[in-house]
Computed example of a mutant assay.
Amino acid sequence: MTRARQPSPQTAAVLRALAADPAQWRYGYELGQEVGLKAGSLYPILIRLSDRGLLEASWETDPPQGRPPRHLYRLTGAGLSMAAELAPVAAPVLRPRPEPRGAW
């Protein structure tokens, strides 16, 4: 099955970040920090990738005491293939913009 269009730059950045170490389970917060996306942009991307079979999602099995379990993510074989297709396209990893410092 071929894709009708290229993924957004944000989705491509998430795929590339996950493809850097495809066997490693990653936390959403960690991914968001790496690619410069806030939760409101990141988690819909992760859900969409998971729904399309490009991403595995799992709950953390042994969270530290006092903290609820977190979701973990990693690429499936299909997700890794898609990330490899994107690799030749030179697109920068998104980084957060520095906060402006105003003279209040």
Rank of each mutant, 00 (worst) to 15 (best):
T2V: 13
R3A: 15
A4G: 03
A4L: 15
A4I: 14
Q6A: 15
P7E: 09
P7G: 13
S8W: 05
P9W: 13
P9V: 11
P9R: 12
Q10Y: 07
T11E: 09
A12S: 10
A12L: 09
A13V: 02
A13K: 01
L18G: 00
L18T: 02
A19F: 01
A19C: 03
A19D: 08
A20S: 04
A23T: 05
A23H: 10
A23Y: 00
Q24P: 04
W25H: 02
R26E: 14
R26W: 11
R26V: 06
R26A: 09
R26Y: 11
Y27T: 10
Y27W: 00
Y27P: 03
G28S: 13
G28F: 07
Y29M: 14
L31K: 00
E34D: 15
A39N: 09
G40L: 13
G40W: 05
S41I: 14
L42R: 01
L42C: 10
L42F: 11
L42Q: 08
Y43G: 02
Y43K: 03
Y43C: 03
Y43P: 00
P44F: 08
I45K: 00
I45F: 00
I45M: 07
I47T: 15
R48I: 02
L49D: 04
L49S: 01
L49F: 01
L49V: 00
D51K: 05
G53S: 11
L54D: 06
L55S: 08
E56Y: 10
E56Q: 12
S58C: 07
S58V: 10
W59E: 15
W59H: 05
W59N: 14
P63C: 12
P64L: 06
P64Y: 05
Q65D: 12
Q65E: 15
Q65T: 01
R67I: 10
R67H: 04
P68I: 10
P68H: 07
H71V: 12
H71Q: 10
H71F: 10
L72G: 04
L72C: 02
Y73S: 05
Y73M: 13
L75H: 06
L75M: 03
L75F: 05
G77S: 13
A78D: 14
L80E: 07
S81I: 04
M82W: 11
M82S: 11
M82C: 12
A83D: 07
E85C: 07
E85P: 02
L86N: 06
A87D: 04
V89L: 10
P92H: 10
L94H: 13
L94Y: 12
R95F: 08
R95A: 14
R95C: 04
P96W: 13
P96D: 11
R97Y: 09
R97I: 04
P98Y: 06
P98E: 15
P98T: 14
